[in-house]
């Protein structure tokens, strides 16, 4: 039984690797439906990854080690993040050493290296994408930490699995601070994962792309890893939201038999989150880049108001 938490850890990472492309496929299928197009099916991201993995890597002559190292690092941080967030069970040995601040730092490292790699080759698009990504990051990260801190006030802990455990054991209560934090988190998640209205994941239009601009020079297995990692990032943000705001269904500590139910709940919640995401993306237009400060500023404001209303109103 000592090994049991480690098995959960491995299971979570495997689920992350396998389910992230399916989730992205689900979102794309829904999007096709809302726009009246026929879709390629929810397993299309797998085929894309397989195709990219079998292709050769084309490297620019002046690419340095940063450029070659970045895809592995981005992929690795996403995998580690899968071990920190309670996806199926709160029994995570890694969660004891790494809390939500570490999680934010992991995302920050991945982003830092992606931005460096964008500038490494020296093309105009890479530099432009990196500069935009950093602009967004500098505004989104404090807001994200603020939103998560508001949640951790209630459980007096920044460890994600402890936060989920406290919510699971207590009565479900409606609090203004949680409502604010949830709203802020949705805005930040849209920005961090590069969805509409901040960035369009499907675009290759030069003037508007942000994340795509940074990874424009990647090909072959490097591109496959980066694409896979960005799918995992979307998945991670959704499960992070679930763990922090609606963890009902996640298996409590030491309960092996709750795992199938936890898996079922996870799939249902992810399906619902996909629908919500597509509704948001279909209903909104992409925002001008200079309006993003206001978008993320209001996310920060909401998170701060959430924290303040915890002290003022509760």
């Amino acid at each position: 039984m000592i090994l049991y938490p480690f098995l959960i850890e491995i299971l979570q990472v495997l689920i992350l690797l396998a389910a992230a492309p399916v989730f992205v496929g689900w979102v794309r299928v829904l999007k096709c439906w809302t726009q009246g197009r026929s879709s390629a099916g929810i397993f299309q991201p797998y085929r894309d990854i397989r195709k990219l993995l079998s292709k050769d890597v084309v490297l620019a002559e002046n690419a340095s080690w940063v450029f070659r190292f970045t895809p592995y690092l981005v992929f690795g941080t996403a995998v580690i993040a899968g071990g920190i967030i309670p996806i199926l069970s709160v029994d995570l040995p890694l969660a004891a050493t790494a809390d939500v601040i570490v999680l934010a730092a992991l995302f920050a490292i991945a982003r830092f290296f992606t931005a460096l790699a964008g500038m490494d080759i020296g093309t105009a698009f890479g530099g432009m994408g990196s500069s935009r990504e950093m602009t967004i990051a500098s505004l989104a990260e404090p807001a994200m930490l603020m939103a998560i801190f508001t949640m951790s006030l209630a459980s007096r802990s920044t460890s994600l699995s402890h936060m989920a455990e406290v919510i699971l054991s207590g009565q479900p209560v409606l609090r203004p601070s949680i409502a604010f934090a949830l709203f802020a988190f949705v805005l930040i998640a849209l920005a961090e994962t590069g969805r509409i209205p901040v960035d369009n994941p499907a675009t290759h239009l030069e003037l508007t792309m942000i994340h795509e601009a940074m990874i424009l020079e990647y090909s072959g297995r490097h591109l496959a890893l980066i694409e896979w990692a960005s799918m995992m990032k979307l998945f991670l943000f959704v499960v992070l939201g679930i763990a922090a705001f609606a963890p009902w269904g996640i298996a409590p500590s030491g309960n092996l038999f709750a795992l199938p139910a936890a898996f079922l709940f996870m799939s249902l919640k992810l399906g619902a989150a996909g629908v919500a995401l597509v509704l948001i993306e279909t209903g909104l237009a992409k925002m001008r880049l200079f309006r993003l400060t206001e978008f993320l500023g209001s996310a920060f404001l909401l998170a701060t108001l959430g924290m303040l209303s915890y002290f003022i109103l509760e």
């Binding site: 209560v173 409606l174 203004p176 409502a179 206001e294 209001s298 404001l301 108001l305 209303s309 109103l313």
Partner: peptide, 20 residues
């Protein structure tokens, strides 16, 4: 009291909304 504090939060939110 709970509902009232929620409404207070919304009043504050609309005040900020008007500000911007």
């Amino acid at each position: 009291a709970h509902i009232n504090s929620f409404l207070a939060a919304f009043v504050l939110l609309t005040a900020f909304g008007m500000l911007v």
